[in-house]
Amino acid sequence: MDFIIAKYNYWIYIILMMIGLYGMIAKNNLAKKVVGMTLFQTAIILFFISTSVKSGGATVPIVMGDPHLHGHVIPGTVHAIQYLNPLPHVLMLTAIVVMVATFGIAVALLMRIYKRYGTLEGDEIVEIRKQEAAL
């Protein structure tokens, strides 16, 4: 039971990630593949954020300063056990923006594909390309 309580968060991310992976592999529609990719990235972001958690009274990584020192602290009085790990937050902050950028590029590509072929189904695009190559 302790094992399940200590590790169940990883299983949730694995389930979410596998839904995204299945969508990327098995779905025929290109738009659904993009949705699968976004789910995959979301699972990775949740996984990284979960590695920053410290139990035992740790708070968000903003140093609570001394009002007499203009909100700053005396050097040496901050201990790592008091605050969450800031590094995964930083990495995922950039990863979210990169996720938006890749999503924008993916949707732009989908629009170009739909304009060129009139469909977003993968096998229909392959058929159209075969017919065009035969001509």
């Binding site: 200590a6 590695t51 410290k54 139990s55 140093v63 700053h72 901050v78 790592a80 590094l87």
Partner: peptide, 21 residues
């Protein structure tokens, strides 16, 4: 879950937390 001594929380982040401000 929530282990304060996990490898991710003991490598470089203590230096960031203690010295950043």
């Amino acid at each position: 879950w929530g282990d304060p001594n996990s490898p991710a929380s003991t490598h470089v982040s203590p230096r960031y937390i203690e010295k950043a401000d």
